[in-house]
Design a binder for these strands. Structure first.
Lengths: 351, 351
DNA sequence: CATGCCTTTGGAAGTGCTTCCACAAGATGC
DNA sequence: GCATCTTGTGGAAGCACTTCCAAAGGCATG
């Protein structure tokens, strides 16, 4: 049971260590008989290669690390599922670095950057610190960004502007003229982009954008993509009284949950009194019948790995930015699925 | 930028490689001056140790792997968060193996078992295959089980029997005499144990246990711990007509979501017409105002790592089984928080 | 039958570290 | 002043593999 090395196999099978290695790695030029004999001995001795000796000698690690913030966020989980599935098909190891605060980005990145430690990095959702960019570039470590973008690296992301545009347009087409937005903190790129999309949609429908109709809760964990922030923002809207918008685009489903709670507590019903469209399509959204913009999270994970592997095998490959378009999932929170209540645009939508 | 080894440092600093290694590892007996000089050179050359060379020479990997099923289940995510936080404090690497089907258990376990690959394993929620137990024991690889139990290994789990007992008792104390149970598949140990707890509670309150009042949906993904299964099971109950129980213990929150949906679609209101208590306290439960049994998931993760590290440093340590007691979180789905409607037991509970 | 080529093989060198052993030099004791 | 101990240090050996090079053997060709 102790440790069996290729030397033991070589001795036992009466061959050289080179031959053993060749057999074990399915290399060329070994006669079928020798191959068979070596394999048999290896099995009999219950040989296990020593991973780190291999990695040292081969000068590659067969591992990929993922640097992820906000671990418990459903979005990451779902993407990670895709990552994990694809990665284990390919036989790589996945090592996970969870980031809880900004300092950890550097700590973990440095750790991943240790010479030879990983073959590639998946970097999620955070802004890349400038000094890190430089280090990464000369470390020549393949890296792909997921849910964030930088000109220097491959990226997989979602068309936030477009998605927000579609969500807002949906609300406008249902006949609403006053559409508010519950947003997350603007330090987050997705939040910024979704705001842009919202604004574009308004303007291309001939409605003036008004800052007063965009609110952000003060709860700032997960950059404001949390339930409490949604709750707080909606409370502010409710304080506006009768002038408050009757339709809202909310920058994430989880915030929408909070917003709906605030609404309900004030006696306002969704969708009868207020229409809501979210963003993400987390599992919760299905249960709550929330209309939302779906991001193809699982596929993003799969693609991220494929892109990373491609880059690893060809470092000179041109940098590729892939953007997925979110799709509108119409459920009940926007009123589109209910009887039309004299809104012509609904009818035409239902065809 | 290329590779700097300890030989480069040794040459540059005019010392031997042994000394360099000693400095880098904070070993004893190096004069302060030498130490300082070596450190300086190392910094100047931007030295990075080669992880795998270290691991090979030290004969330990400083990595822990987690073997986890049903990745997208909220329970695991939350536990994993605890695991991840503690692990990165300790400076270990976390490598993740997601199991999607039974075969993968062996594949991944074998991979983790590769000689020297990991220092310890966290094994989640699944029954350990017998033949694996033997292999693990003579591989002498430290392993701790989370959310599952075996006499041969340390484990961290939740008192399912006790929890189910408390949940059911809560319902009984609210005055219900006929309490049904929506369960998951009995292949799952938690499901079995929760059934026991339910039964005990009934019997110690003088109520006869009846098989007809326990139903399991046919949807068997995640061993029946899924929304559809809860929906199906509740549909069956509803078919009973007026005889159906008006209170249910459901073996997981996610099933409770399905059950509530089935109820609502049949015009039955929760908690006015039917009382529900779940199990887990996933995030969704809070949003849905579901009364449930909370498992301390994050802490379980933290403890799992601590236990594992303890075992790694002392393999002879006695095997320890830690069981957390779930706590009852009373929200609105059981009717306990509403006006008492002439139920004396409620009053006494409210004190 | 000699020559050349291809296939198969053994094992040295290499991967970059840790650790152990031996030795030098200075400190201490008598 | 000599023996003994201590402290700091260099570098060989070891960790378990891959890979390269040279050599041996087999075969066909003219």
């Amino acid at each position: 049971m102790a440790k069996v090395t290729i030397y033991d196999i070589a001795r036992e099978a009466g061959v050289g260590i080179g031959t053993v290695s060749r057999v074990l790695n399915n290399h060329t030029s070994v006669t079928p008989e020798t191959r068979k004999r070596v394999k048999e001995v290896a099995r009999r001795l219950n040989y296990q290669p020593h991973t780190y000796a291999q990695r040292l000698a081969r000068r590659q690690s067969e591992t990929i690390s993922a640097i992820i913030p906000f671990f418990t966020n459903y979005f990451f989980i779902e993407v990670l599922q895709g990552v994990q599935d694809r990665i284990s098909q390919l036989g790589y190891d996945l090592v996970l670095y969870g980031v809880n605060n900004v300092d950890q980005v550097e700590t973990h990145l440095s750790r991943a950057l240790q010479r030879g430690k990983v073959d590639g990095i998946l970097f999620f959702s955070m802004k890349l610190p400038e000094k890190i960019v430089a280090r990464l570039r000369d470390a020549k470590l393949p890296m792909v960004l997921v849910d964030t973008v930088s000109p220097d690296f491959d990226s997989i992301s979602v068309a936030n502007v477009e998605g927000a545009y579609a969500a807002t347009t949906h609300l406008l087409e249902l006949g609403h003229r006053s559409v508010g937005m519950v947003n997350a903190q603007l330090v987050s790129t997705p939040a910024l982009e979704r705001l842009q999309g919202y604004r574009h949609a308004l303007e291309s429908h001939g409605i003036t954008y008004s800052e007063g109709l965009v609110k952000t809760g003060s709860s700032n964990k997960q950059d404001g993509f949390n339930r409490e922030a949604g709750y707080e923002a909606m409370e502010e809207f409710i304080e506006m009284g009768p002038d408050m918008p009757r339709a809202f685009f909310v920058s994430s489903d989880i915030q929408a949950m909070g917003a709906i709670a605030a609404l309900t507590e004030s006696g306002l019903r969704v969708p009868e009194d207020v229409a809501i469209v979210g963003f993400d399509d987390i599992e919760l959204a299905r249960h709550m019948r929330l209309t939302t913009m779906r991001q193809p999270m699982y596929q993003m994970g799969v693609l991220a790995i494929e892109r990373l592997v491609a880059r690893m095998s060809n470092p000179e490959m041109e940098i590729l930015h892939t953007t997925f378009s979110p799709t509108l999932i119409v459920r009940e929170s926007c009123g589109a699925l209910r009887s039309s209540e004299g809104m012509p645009s609904v009818k035409s939508k239902q065809r």
